[in-house]
């Protein structure tokens, strides 16, 4: 239920933290996009991607359990495609024999299964690394330095701050409901959750009005000014860029 599940402190001492967060974010997004754009039929490339990612995971000292929990997000999709593969009767020209069995399954669906399993795994693991290494405010600064539109940076900052506050309120409402043991028809239960969402909205709206007043009281005029501690690029940053860019190029050209 926590808005931002944070892994243990081990990542604080990780080698990967020497890289500038801006560089890390760009590298991760480039890696995710390149691997997603690679046809799954060229499977040796994915072995290479996984190798590259493994090095990054080790350098980040992320715990395996934490990564596995995040990987569970893709599980419903993998299961759904796997079930489709088993259940859908393949058309005559697309049927292939499932390796090791006598079962005839659809070739395109089998390829889709491999695609979602491989690409979702690589993507989720890669996307998890910056979050594991740095606190969210640092990443917001990195996004700001990367010229993401200012409005987005502001909205992300506010959202992160108030997700905790509203999340706590939501949790208290769920507890209050569960404490009174919600028996009753489904329709009733759905409407109850609806009115909880309505209350959450009204409270959130009124909170936003007060926050706006508090900001105006301190001279806010619509422009969010943040001190961005822009560190100079260091050798480690250049090395990270070169390694990732070089590796990605080599894998695409090979």
């Amino acid at each position: 239920m926590s808005p931002c599940d944070h892994p243990e402190q081990a990542t604080r001492r990780a080698l990967a933290r020497r890289v500038d967060p801006r560089v890390a974010v760009v590298c991760v997004l480039a890696f995710v996009t390149v691997q997603a754009a690679t046809p799954i039929e060229e499977w040796p490339r994915f072995v290479a991607y996984a190798g590259l990612l493994l090095i990054a995971v080790i350098a980040s000292r992320v715990s395996l359990v934490w990564l596995l929990k995040r990987l569970a997000l893709a599980l419903p999709f993998v299961i759904a495609v796997a079930m489709s593969t088993l259940l859908v009767r393949p058309s005559a020209d697309s049927a292939v024999r499932l390796p090791g069995t006598d079962l005839m399954v659809s070739g395109p669906l089998l390829i889709l299964l491999a695609s979602v399993a491989a690409k979702a795994t690589l993507s989720i693991v890669a996307l998890s690394l910056p979050v594991a290494l740095w606190d969210f405010p640092v990443l917001v600064r990195a996004l700001q330095a990367l010229r993401i539109p200012r409005l987005f940076v502001m909205l992300i900052a506010f959202m992160w701050r108030y997700v905790y506050v509203l999340g706590d309120e939501a949790r208290r409402m769920v507890q209050a409901r569960d404490a009174r043991s919600p028996r009753g028809r489904l329709v009733r239960r759905v409407l109850v959750v609806g009115s909880m969402a309505g209350s959450l909205f009204v409270r959130g709206y009124e909170r936003a009005e007060r926050v706006g007043q508090a900001m105006v009281a301190r001279g806010y005029d619509g422009r969010l000014r943040l001190l961005v501690p822009l560190r100079r690029f260091r050798a480690a940053d250049a090395a990270a860029v070169l390694v990732v860019a070089g590796a990605l190029c080599a894998m695409r050209l090979a």
Binding site: M1, P3, L151, M154, L155, I156, A157, F158, M159, W160, R161, Y162, V163, V165, L166, G167, E169, A170, R171, M173, V174, P182, L186, R189, V190, V193, M196, A197, L200, F201, G204, Y205, R207, A208, E209, V211, G212, Q213, M215, V216, Y220, D221, G222, L224
Partner: peptide, 29 residues
């Protein structure tokens, strides 16, 4: 952006938090 008043920026930010937090309200089916 053109029509946005200064105090409406925190409003939209809090509304994003509302959508996020609202997704925590689960209905036991």
């Amino acid at each position: 952006s053109r029509a946005l008043k200064p105090e409406e920026v925190p409003l939209m930010g809090v509304m994003a938090a509302f959508v996020f937090a609202g997704q925590m309200l689960n209905v036991p089916v």
